[in-house]
Every structure is written in structure tokens, then in C-alpha cells.
Simulated assay, not measured.
Amino acid sequence: MNKRQLIRSATALACAALAAGLVQAQDFPPKKPVTMVVGFAAGGAADAAARLIAKKLGENVGQTVVVDNKGGAGGNIAHQFTAKGPADGSLLLFGSIGPLTIAPHLMKVGYDPFKDLAPVSGGVNFPNVLVVHKGVGAKTLAEFVALSKKPGAKVEFASTGAGSASHLAGELFNQQAKIDMVHVPYKGGAPALQDLLGERIASYFAAPPTAMPHVEAGKLIPLATTGPKRPAYLPNIPTVAESGYPGFEALNWYAFVAPGKTPAPILDRWNVEIVKVLNDPEVKKALEAHGLTPQPTTRAELTTFMKKEDAKWSAIVKERNIKAN
């Protein structure tokens, strides 16, 4: 092939790529209703956030966005479903920390978060709050750690399941505080909270909306929150980091991803629309009322964040020898 033919070939390929990109961009929004998959049952924090965002998203793009709850296996079922779903822009997943960066290090999940799913935008985040019942006898994190270090002490902490965000928050604290709390997994927040209130377990890294009504009623004592700073709705509860463990951070987070083969122009368009919704003052106010902080990002920022979280939690899984249920 001579030089002129090479130039013609390269030009033709460039034009074809540009045309394909334009066609893909014109396919937005999809001509059929969009499905937003949520890996947890209706009624929880993830579902509430997804429905708020989906409603506004549909209004903005002029297409129906339907929330589809596919609970089970800690959210992994929803992630498996999305990884194998249509890659035409009609399917989004409100993915979460567990299935995206923790579960793959504990079990065979049937998908690769970095190959079978494509990042779109960050969604929301919230810290856990470490709460204890009154019988524990600790009113501060320092007192709780001192109790945990007493000879023969067997202090338990509840979670919503092995590999969940609440479980890994406890294991990270075990590592940094050099204690050995015993992990007790539950099948959800409700049974964990019930046993804590019944004083059958000492502590629980709980979601604030779950725990705070009982704190306000004087039934539970909050020791610390697990985020990098105090959330605006919990100004009087110190963080673990400011209580003697600098750098401690264990946030729950949800992010938007799509099937891995979804064309980049469509992913870019969804990013623009989702970021617009998360920055909408009314949506932000509604999410914050649920104890959720909007976390809009670029696609590249989400990829970097997920890789950082993946490395962090895989190290904890190995060091603490965490196993799946």
C-alpha cells in the first residue's frame, strides 16, 4: 500500500469513527423507557435516592426512567443482571460499594466491575455511625476501645452481612485501633438493630437514618461517625478520625454504572444528565433529608475512586482474613 492509499485509509477510518460517534450520540435519550436497577429492596435509603434521581432524570431527558429493585446477595444479583444487560443506554445501575469493590474479593460474583460495568457518575454517600447500648458502659470512642482491650473482653459488632460496608468499617477500625471485636453478621439492618436494642450485641456500625431515632430516644449511645468529616445533620457526633485515628474513612457510597459495552458517547451524555440532577438544589435538599450527600463526578473521577476503594478494601479483606457467609 503506497503513501496515498495509507492516507485515504486512515481518513476513511477516522470518518467512520466520527460518524459512528455521531450516530451513537443521536441515540440519546434511548427511544425506549430507561431502567435504573437498584440492588436492594424498596423502601431503603438506596431505593429512596434512586427514585428521587430517576424522577428528575426522566423529566430532564424526556424519557421515562423506571426503578427496578433486584434485591438479593448483598446487591450482587443486580450487578450481575446489569453486566449482562443491553448496552444501548437504556440500562443504568445504582451500584454500591459492596458489589463494586468488596464482594469480588470474597467470592465469585459473575462479573468484573472494571470490565463488565462502565462508570458513569458518582451518586451519593453517607457515613455509618458506631452506636452501642447503654449496658456497654462507654460514652466515648476512647472508652469503648479501652473496654475492648481488657483481658478476656469479647466485644461484638453487628453488620448487615459479611463483606458489607458496615462489616468492613468494623474491620478497618479493628486494624487501626489494634483491637479484635468479634464480627456478627445479620441479614439486614433491622435484625441487627433489634439485637443491639435488646442488648444481645454490643455495637453496630449503623446507617444514621436507622440508628438516630433510637439515639434521640435515649436508647443508644453514638460514639463516632465513619466519614472524613462530621455530616451537617450530625454536628455533635465526632468522627473516628478526630477521635484519635487520623485518616480513618469508611463511607457507604452508591455510583451510577452501565453495561460495559455501552458506547462512550452515550455514557458521556448520561454523565452530564446525572451530574445535572445531583447538582439540582431541590434534589440535593431531598437527598440530604434522607441523610445522603450527593457525590457527582466525571467518569474518569469515578474510575479513579473505585480503583482506590478496591485496593483499600481488598487489603483489609486479606489482612483480616474475611470470608463470605
Rank of each mutant, 00 (worst) to 15 (best):
V182M: 10
H183Y: 11
Y186M: 07
G188V: 09
G188M: 07
G189T: 09
G189P: 08
A192Q: 05
D195K: 04
L196S: 00
L197D: 08
L197E: 08
L197Y: 08
S203N: 04
Y204G: 00
F205Q: 01
T210I: 14
T210L: 14
P213Y: 05
V215P: 09
V215G: 07
E216F: 08
A217D: 13
I221N: 03
I221T: 12
P222V: 06
P222I: 08
A224V: 08
T225S: 13
T225D: 13
T225P: 07
P228I: 01
K229P: 11
R230E: 12
Y233R: 10
N236W: 08
I237E: 01
P238C: 04
P238Y: 04
P238H: 05
A241D: 09
S243H: 01
G247N: 07
G247L: 12
F248A: 06
E249S: 11
A250M: 04
A250V: 01
A250K: 00
A250S: 13
L251H: 12
L251W: 11
W253C: 04
Y254L: 15
A255S: 10
F256T: 01
V257C: 07
V257G: 03
P259N: 09
P259G: 09
G260R: 13
G260L: 06
G260N: 13
K261E: 15
P263D: 08
A264H: 14
A264P: 13
P265Q: 14
I266T: 12
I266V: 15
L267R: 11
R269P: 04
W270L: 13
W270R: 02
N271L: 08
V272P: 06
I274C: 03
K276W: 11
K276G: 12
V277F: 04
L278N: 05
N279R: 15
